[in-house]
């Protein structure tokens, strides 16, 4: 995919004026135009086009509750909490950045010091009724812990619709089976990141 055509600001490129003849002024000219338009058979072109589509029967309908469109990996739907590939433990370190950045103030979290003197998330909820799915939380998260998932069917009976940490967390079986999907939207590691990392010079 070349980007030149999108970056080009030279709008004259490839533009041309459509050849439209002047509207007839006198009666005879108007009459000739009517006759020409009448006999050109454009109505039949229209009829043929729709009949062709009916015969081809190339239906584009998706019967939604039964069938679903595949959605892109970058789609920003209900959040997910990831686990570490190495140890299967939760990635979230309880830094609170997501709570801080959330522009609709819908993340509520609490942390405590656990028995190993490590910070641990004790409470974590997102009010999906307020969330605008902007993706800032996923972008700011230093651990790639909170990401967006693909589950977009989240109807609720009331405006406040909370999702708990446990429901967002990748189930341990999925994790054990190696099926956890990484989010590719912003905040995620760009592909080939390893090749682009430069060693820090030790001179300074």
């Amino acid at each position: 995919m070349h980007k030149e055509q999108f970056n080009s600001r030279n709008v004259n490129n490839g533009y041309y004026l459509v050849d439209i003849e002047d509207y007839p002024q006198d009666g005879w000219g108007k009459f000739k135009r009517v006759v020409r338009r009448t006999l050109r058979g454009e109505l039949f072109v229209g009829l043929w086009v729709v009949l062709r589509e009916m015969i081809k029967f190339d239906i584009h309908t998706i019967e939604y509750p039964l069938e679903k469109m595949p959605i892109g990996p970058r789609y920003r739907a209900v959040h997910e909490m990831k686990r570490l590939w190495e140890s299967d433990t939760e990635r979230c370190i309880g830094c609170g950045l997501c709570e801080k950045i959330c522009i609709s103030d819908c993340i509520r979290m609490d942390t405590r010091i656990d028995e190993n003197s490590r910070k641990e998330v004790s409470q974590y909820t997102i009010n999906l009724g307020r969330c605008i799915f902007c993706g800032y939380c996923a972008e700011v998260c230093p651990e790639l812990a909170i990401t967006h998932g693909g589950e977009y069917e989240n109807a609720s009976e009331q405006r406040e619709h909370f999702i708990m940490y446990e429901d967002m967390l990748t189930p341990i079986d999925t994790m054990k089976a190696g099926k956890q999907l990484e989010f590719e939207g912003f905040g995620a590691i760009t592909p080939h990141e390893d090749e682009r990392v430069k060693k820090t010079p030790l001179a300074y």
Binding site: E53, M54, F57, I59
Partner: peptide, 13 residues
């Protein structure tokens, strides 16, 4: 149905 087929839809299903 016919309008739907002509517009590449399925119509009532």
């Amino acid at each position: 149905k016919i309008l739907a087929f002509m517009q590449r839809r399925l119509g009532p299903m």
